[in-house]
Lab assay of single mutants.
Amino acid sequence: TYYTVKSGDTLNKIAAQYGVSVANLRSWNGISGDLIFVGQKLIVKKG
């Protein structure tokens, strides 16, 4: 599943929405910090 980042989104918010961990979101998307951008597509695997 792909999720497109919207204004106001955070990794924590997206992780909670999908029932996954922030660590997994980072791993699946090659993100090291907490910086995400509006319009960015993130890979999300269902929890």
Rank of each mutant, 00 (worst) to 15 (best):
V44M: 06
D34V: 07
A15H: 03
G30T: 09
N12Y: 14
A23E: 13
L25N: 00
V44H: 02
T10I: 04
A15C: 05
S27N: 11
Y3T: 04
A23Q: 12
G47F: 12
I43D: 04
V20Y: 03
Y2Q: 09
K45P: 07
V44N: 01
K6E: 13
Y18Q: 08
K6Q: 15
L25P: 00
W28A: 04
A15Q: 02
G47C: 09
T10P: 01
G8K: 06
G39F: 03
K41R: 12
G39K: 04
I36W: 03
N12R: 11
Y18M: 11
D34A: 06
K45Y: 15
G33Y: 07
V5E: 00
G39A: 04
W28V: 04
S7W: 10
T4K: 08
S27A: 11
L11F: 05
I43N: 06
V20M: 06
L11Y: 03
I14M: 03
T1W: 13
T1A: 10
Y3G: 02
L11M: 08
A23C: 13
G8E: 06
G19Q: 12
D34E: 10
N29C: 01
G47I: 15
I31Y: 03
S27T: 14
S27Y: 14
G19T: 07
I31K: 02
V38K: 07
A16F: 12
G8Q: 06
D9N: 02
G47A: 13
V5Y: 02
A15M: 03
D9R: 00
Y3V: 07
K13H: 10
D34N: 10
T4G: 04
L25Q: 00
N24M: 12
G47K: 11
G19N: 14
I14P: 00
Y2S: 08
V22F: 03
V44Q: 01
I43T: 07
S27C: 14
A15N: 01
W28S: 03
L35Y: 15
L11N: 01
S21P: 09
I14A: 01
A16N: 12
G19D: 13
V38H: 07
R26Y: 05
I43Q: 09
D9P: 00
I36Q: 02
